[in-house]
Design a protein around this nucleic acid. Structure first.
Lengths: 226, 226
DNA sequence: CCGTTAGTTAACAATTTGATAATGTTAACT
DNA sequence: AGTTAACATTATCAAATTGTTAACTAACGG
């Protein structure tokens, strides 16, 4: 789940490889390199990178050829391909993009910009945040994208407000939420409801889950503790 | 499902807008334009484009400001933002990408290249078709290329909207889709239909398939669970 | 003890969905 | 064009669920 993102750099100039590697490494990427087109293809297969930076002008095979090959292979379907070139001519640019490149960068370019562009590319690919809205605590799981809670493998169905309340508290276990905070977070600032309303919902959660995962802090509020 | 891709161009130079529009139009995109930053935001809201091309130097609000605003709004989560500038300075470049831009293009650039880059951006977004044409869950198969559903070997014919709705939900089993999401995905942002419309279609799906593969999450939405 | 705060319960109110029928709309076929 | 049938949408009402309140009880701290 949290495997580092892998990037392969193919360029025949060692200096370029070194400086780019350095910057990418600093950001936590795992980097491999290749010095020509053939090696790029080998490394792509063995290293299975998430992103490949290809210089166009390389010995053995050009970046175009490598790009074309990669795009024809199913396993590189989702691999980002960035084409890099000293040429600044339009034809190459278009050709690169048409061959399935995801980005096309003209040299000279500062490493910082290159790295920014790559970061931007990845940002798009990041799994939709809805996926990662799951809270777990011991044998309790709260998944907001599915609106369900699973305790010891048993799914408990909470009503909307109950769920939202539990989710709010569980998002920061141990932290005490004032009644006012709970109201504004779960109910919003517009609606006005009495104080007992919170109590009743807390009670329903406790009853449905069958465990006392919510602690009362008298005179202050409630906290999730489990 | 096959609505044309919509692109919004914001630039204060009418010539630029015209030439880019022309090329994008030719490729079948639906194009709208804005002449300054404020108009860009208005149009973004009303037009709901899939991609926004922003000149950085614009009256009223700069492209940076517009970009920052768009990225702060949930509905533009998946909207591509391309920043366009006459400046070729690195700081702007990085700033643009850090503000959430998806691509950064320096003028002057030929329309062909610009269009290629935009096409490349979209290509990356396309959900890999190979995976997504057929969905299976237990003894249920949903094949979008044939618009048919097969349950336990028996083919059930769903109407267009019914099918699209089922397909949407089944593509991410377990995930709850809000009514609003369903509306914008299946019906699109332009048409306005009442809430009961969704219910009725859900009901028809349940009736036709004879199984309850769709779960109601009261007050929230629906999810596919089977 | 006494006042304050939280828990419990049941009644009631509000919201949401389900079911059905009726009305538009579209597409296909004469 | 006219006819028909399938589909999509809306309207309406019933049913179920959920949310809120009130009234009472229990617990806690000084």
């Amino acid at each position: 789940m949290e495997a580092p993102i892998k990037i392969l750099i193919a360029d025949d100039e060692p200096d370029i490889i070194e400086i780019i590697s350095f910057h990418l490494n600093k950001l936590g990427y795992e980097v491999a390199s290749a010095k020509d087109g053939s090696e790029a293809i080998e490394k792509a297969n063995s290293f299975a990178p998430d992103c490949i930076i290809l210089d166009i002008m390389m010995p053995k095979r050009t970046g175009f050829e490598v790009c074309e090959y990669l795009r024809s292979q199913k396993q590189f379907d989702k691999t980002l391909i960035v084409l890099l070139t000293a040429l600044n001519d339009e034809a190459s640019h278009i050709k690169g993009l048409e061959l399935g490149g995801d980005d096309f960068i003209s040299k000279p370019i500062s490493p910082k910009v290159l790295v920014s562009r790559i970061t931007a590319l990845f940002r798009r690919l990041q799994p939709t945040e809805s996926d990662k809205k799951i809270i777990t605590a011991n044998d309790l799981m709260i998944d907001i994208s599915q609106y369900k809670t699973v305790l010891k493998g048993v799914t408990h169905v909470l009503a909307k407000k109950e769920f939202e309340l539990l989710y709010l508290l569980a998002a920061q276990p141990g932290r005490v939420f004032l009644r006012g905070e709970i109201l504004s977070q779960v109910w919003g600032n517009d609606v006005i409801v009495g104080d007992r309303t919170i109590d009743v919902h807390i009670r329903k959660i406790r009853a449905k889950l069958g465990i006392d995962c919510i602690t009362t802090v008298k005179g202050v509020g409630y906290k999730f503790d489990y």
